[in-house]
Design a protein around this nucleic acid. Structure first.
Lengths: 107, 107
DNA sequence: CAGTTATATAACGAACTTATTATATAACAA
DNA sequence: TTGTTATATAATAAGTTCGTTATATAACTG
């Protein structure tokens, strides 16, 4: 279940966006994900918990490791919200009052 | 200038997403934007300041009013980040190790 | 079994967020 | 000019976030 509040909030953090970008390339363990950052392991564990809570990533258990992977459906849902926005924007792009407002602004 | 941190963070708030959705329909003043919410005017002014700071909205001065409108370029930029993600996801969707990981998960 | 590795959790402080109330300011209307 | 409208700003309280250190736990390794 994706929650837009939580999803956008999760992606507001650059470390978490980097983690998500990394996971787009494929599964990775917590230590692998932590490696590029100057941050302790608990900090990364927390970021992963936030991403998981937002529905953006999934994890499995493999011995002592917890490989993470992206939840593609979540990306799609965020995308849908933006798509709605784009569509509404496009639908109103040529409306007369908008055009007039635009002209007025440029004076 | 859009800042992804600020943009995602701004969109993490449901009030602000509603404001953005409303602005996708066209310009609106602060009071018009505030009307649907059970929230004081200063609270809305702050939300607008956050959206403006994130580069998501633009404002003009019209007498005593400050009509706001969406900055379509900002939407596009967020979109681009997601597009990158989608692309990377797609590029790796058929890689063998991912397929194997998926199979293993389902057992 | 003892030591090590992978990860999680808790406690804590610093910094930030959000809403409120009170108040300021600037433009408009009478 | 005086009152009103549209909006902004400041002070403040409550709640949240983020990173740290310290510690727990469970699975491997020898």
């Amino acid at each position: 279940m994706l929650n837009l509040d939580a999803a956008f909030s999760a992606l507001a953090d650059p470390t978490r966006r980097a983690i998500v970008a990394r996971l787009a390339l494929g599964e990775a363990t917590v230590m692998e994900l932590a490696e590029p950052f100057e941050m302790t392991q608990p900090a990364i564990s927390r970021h992963l918990k936030v991403l998981e809570g937002a529905g953006l990533i999934l994890r499995r258990v493999e011995g002592t490791k917890r490989p993470c992977r992206l939840a593609p459906a979540a990306v799609a849902e965020i995308d849908q919200w933006l798509a709605m926005l784009r569509q509404t924007l496009a639908a109103n792009y040529n409306r007369l009052d908008d055009v007039l407002a635009e002209m007025k602004t440029k004076e």
